[in-house]
Design a protein around this nucleic acid. Sequence first.
DNA 1: AGGCAATCTTGACGCCGTAAAGTTAACTTG
DNA 2: CAAGTTAACTTTACGGCGTCAAGATTGCCT
Lengths: 196, 196
Amino acid sequence: MTKTKHHHGNLKEALVTAGLALLEEGGIDALSLRKCAARAGVSHAAPAHHFDGLPGLKSAIAVEAFGIFSSYLQTAVDEGEQSAQARLKNLCRGYMQFGLDHGGLLAVIFGGAGLASYVPGAGKEEAHAYLILREVCAPFVGDHDDKRVIEAQVWSLIHGFTLLYVSGEFGPPHGQDGPFEAVMDLLNRIGNRPAP
Amino acid sequence: MTKTKHHHGNLKEALVTAGLALLEEGGIDALSLRKCAARAGVSHAAPAHHFDGLPGLKSAIAVEAFGIFSSYLQTAVDEGEQSAQARLKNLCRGYMQFGLDHGGLLAVIFGGAGLASYVPGAGKEEAHAYLILREVCAPFVGDHDDKRVIEAQVWSLIHGFTLLYVSGEFGPPHGQDGPFEAVMDLLNRIGNRPAP
DNA sequence: AGGCAATCTTGACGCCGTAAAGTTAACTTG
DNA sequence: CAAGTTAACTTTACGGCGTCAAGATTGCCT
């Protein structure tokens, strides 16, 4: 942990933290290698020793952002009403709210080479966000249904709505959540409706 | 139309055309003011006299791309089976196929300041793509339904699916269209089911 | 103590968007 | 038709960007 002229201590982590801050402050366009380096108090070429260029740094930031995203979803699912329908809508509301509150993080998560490359383990199946999605969708999967179909339907619907909503296609996103409720009504028809 | 040393003839159009070509060849990252200018045979500062910087050029390109997108959707809707259900699925298939075939154009269309700023008229309601969406959704709008709800549901679902599918979240997009059919099954439950 | 590898700095290169000033062509006006 | 004006484009320059190559410093290992 000694911080001398040529040894920062934990530069890798500091660069990722700086990147997250830049994303929160100025969105995806504000993220640059040189600004991360400057914010970490290091020369512009230092990051090259820890990441494979800008894409590598972005990937490392995306891993962290994906973790924050997952926590966000978990919190949203667990609060409020706890029926299967409500938990499904809670998940979607958390997804949308994350897009509104942390657009830069969402952009770095989904603007890269795919989520599969961010999860540390072998397959994407172990990522926290996937587990939440699977668990929340489970009550809606009928005996003869493919659970991946239900999950893909929910994911597509909320992902598309969030991106369109955040970019203002359904009107200014700061008003009532009418559009959200309207689109999420489609969830009431998904899969096998579970007992309330 | 005289093309002298200081008068290109129709530079504005040439720059947009060059931009579309760059997008098709190298995606959104390959689009730059200087490359558009070079491809149009003009100095790098020339575009400034026709567009308000790079965002202005991108907007002009997005207008054109949006027109291509609309034609793409119209063609998809009009071919194949012509039941209301089939036309709805045709629309979505065209949306997805456009994302696969012209990812750069889709990125410039939805990566900017919102579609509303691209349509020439006053409101977005007159844009061709909106008219197609509205027309295809109309048979599913019940007497006491808000048609905008149905349209937003369809748009969100196909938009989210397309972006996730193109970026590989449902597996390599070059295989069978299983994911598409699976997600689009949700459309069978939308609105009031019309007579076949 | 000596050697070595990791870490960070410095400098340079080419590409980028943008602004300012200069040049040429076309149009307008008397 | 000649002079003045405007529009279109070029040239030059600046700072920021990602990236590479070379050099300096540090800590570890033998």
